[in-house]
Each structure stands twice: as structure tokens, then as C-alpha cells.
Amino acid sequence: MSSHDAHGHDGGGHHVAPRNLLLGVLIILLIMTVLTVYTALYVDVGAVGNLIIALFIAIFKSALVVGFFMHLHWDNKFNAVALLYCLLAIGTFMLFTITDIGSRSKIEPVRNEIIPSTQVRDAINAWKEEHGEEAYEARMAVHDDDHHGDDHGDHEGDGHGDDDHAGDDHGNDEDH
């Protein structure tokens, strides 16, 4: 850590990230975000496949952020060691926990039995009691302009947004 003679343009002896590099990184990051959304919505390689693609893109993006925005590329290497050790700890945490939860059923099936929650049914029944059975049927009616919400595939943002909200406010008249 010697003293640098600073003359205005060396950032007091610390590395100054080039502007065009930062800008380039930002553009790549934005493109990657678009790519994440695109692959998730329009590329179907199975649930696991899509997850892996999304995670790879996320890891690539975070590597760019860490490396250039956070200056780790030019930084003291111990900072990188600290980060890697932390990631290792997280990996261990995740790996062993998943191994346990994921393999419990193989050896003793009873351990994997999950008592289903009754919360959702209670919520539905409470709504029916308040508004009536018919109102519920009407509320659940599927219309052509709606995407069907119960299968998962290549549709986007379905069943979401203000019409749901209106449905709650105005009772059962939303779709008439």
C-alpha cells in the first residue's frame, strides 16, 4: 500500500473503472434481463431446464455486478476469498438441507407425509358464507378473454391485476 502521487486523475491511487466498461456492463445486464424473461416465457425446456437457464443467467449477471460494478476484479484478493467462502457456506447449507428433505421419503415414506393446510379451504368457505354460493360460482367463471390460470405454460401475467381487485370491491358483479 504505497502512497501514490495523485494528480487529479487517478482517484487517489485507487483503480478507476472506465466509463465505457461500466456502460457496457449495464447494457449486457439489461439484455440479460430481457433474455431471462424471454426464455422463461417463450422457451420451454421443462421446468427444471428453465430454472437452470434462469439461474445461469442470474449467476452471470451477478458475476458482472460483483466483478465490475463492485470493483472486485481490481480489488484486494482477500475480499474475493471472503465472498467465495461465503458462497461455499451457502452451498453447503443448501446442499445438505435439500439432500435431507429430498430423500426423506425414500427410506421412511411416513416422514415425507405433509399434513395439508386447511387455510385455503377456510378462506373459500368464509367467502362463500359472506357472499353466497352463486356469487362464488360467478366469480370463478372463466371467460374467453381470461387466460386459464391452472395450467402453467407459455402465458404471461394471467388472471392478474385490477379486475381481481375490482371483483373484491364490487362483490359478484364484475363479470356481468
Binding site: T92, F96, T99, D100, I101, S103, R104, K106, I107, E108, R111
Partner: peptide
């Protein structure tokens, strides 16, 4: 990497 030994009786036998 050893925390699971607190849960021998409640976790999967493999792990």
C-alpha cells in the same frame, strides 16, 4: 458441515 448430527432422529438416514 456437521450440523445435521443434532437431528439424527428426525432426518433422513442417508444424510
Amino acid at each position: 458441515i456437521v450440523w445435521g448430527h443434532h437431528m439424527f432422529t428426525s432426518q433422513d438416514a442417508l444424510i
